[in-house]
Design a protein around this nucleic acid. Structure first.
Lengths: 195, 195
DNA sequence: GCCTACATGTAAATAGTTACATGATTGA
DNA sequence: TCAATCATGTAACTATTTACATGTAGGC
């Protein structure tokens, strides 16, 4: 349930603007999103098949989104969003069930922020922040409690983990502030506008 | 193959010093190691069973490592390392096949550094560092290449990911330096000794 | 008496990777 | 012609989560 749903969403998102082949989908996803750095075809193609069966996407024989259009390649299948797929994407983008998402799910949602409305963006960022805060407390409690049960390496590992999560929270804070100060402007934003 | 092996190693490591119940193993692992924050019993107990079958650990009816010893609890099973389990742990700790490990595997190995010899520690740290460097290049290439294909949010996500990996590399560099400057001293170290 | 934490497990469903099988196109 | 990259898929295996099933001990 977990990752395939995320993969489905990521595919819907990446097909939003142009049809692509499976191969291209894999490359883009791998290049743009951490979670799919090493996505295997054994995951991708079955997922595409399921999506076709569910009517979310369509497989068509030719003319993907490539640059040159003259060649006569065989066996290339371009997938494109259907209307139900498009609705499903909108639905997903509007629903900020910010609870229970794992890191990967957040990344995918975030990467689709350009097509997410401002209120939902804010809710997602805040939801993510509060979950990370909980984690922060758990880990720092753990660190305090182990404290004298020595093992400096384990402690160092946790200290480092803690730091990374703290930075993640700071990053979110910056983003949240940005979203807030951008209020009154666009509803369908496209830039974190900070540097 | 991937995570269970890591779980097996983590269990061997945590049972090195005292026998523990399954329940205690889960708690400790969850508290000390990120990868096992949400380890389920459905993963843990089958793994313990496999380890018993493989002769790496032994299940004994009573007397775990608890504080008070007077109570007569039922159905509590304390697992302890067998001699083969102990050898297996040593083997694993000596082998720094630093290639192909994922993040979780590194964390588990690192948490066992107190029982790992200095040369192996260094090899593991350097192996990890070089893999992260590769990732760094891939991601920053990707960032440069997308660059004008707009979408500021996706770019921001990658920038942030890049930063986190960069920090991870800096952390490793500090650790590596520490290990190097500690040369001539202990072979079986116990402290990163930096603050 | 009730709730929480302790404690152990199984079965079914899900997900994911690896290895395999195949073949076209491009450029050196 | 040879290698790399493009391109699509399947089957077997491995791992993992979720939901279930059961029961004890200690504190309020």
């Amino acid at each position: 349930m977990a990752k395939t749903d995320v993969l489905t969403l990521a595919i819907l998102g990446i097909l939003r603007d142009q049809p692509l082949h499976g191969y291209q989908i894999r490359k883009r996803l791998g290049a743009e999103l951490g979670p799919f750095r090493a996505l295997s075809y054994g995951s991708l193609y079955p997922c595409l098949r399921r999506m076709v069966e569910a009517g979310l996407i369509e497989a068509s024989g030719e003319e993907p989104a490539g640059s040159s259009s003259a060649s006569s390649r065989r066996a290339r299948i371009a997938y494109s969003l259907t209307d139900p797929g498009r609705s499903r994407l909108s639905e997903e983008l509007a629903n900020a069930g910010a609870s229970s998402w794992d890191d990967d799910a957040f990344d995918v949602r975030f990467s689709l922020f350009a097509h997410t409305d401002a209120a939902t963006r804010l809710r997602i960022l805040e939801g993510r922040r509060s979950r990370l805060s909980e984690r922060l407390e758990e880990v720092s409690d753990g660190l305090k409690r182990m404290h004298e049960r020595h093992d400096a390496y384990t402690a160092e590992l946790q200290r480092h983990g803690l730091e990374q999560v703290e930075r993640e929270v700071q990053w979110l804070d910056r983003l949240i502030e940005n979203e807030r100060s951008a209020r009154g402007g666009e509803n369908n934003g496209s830039a974190p506008a900070d540097h």
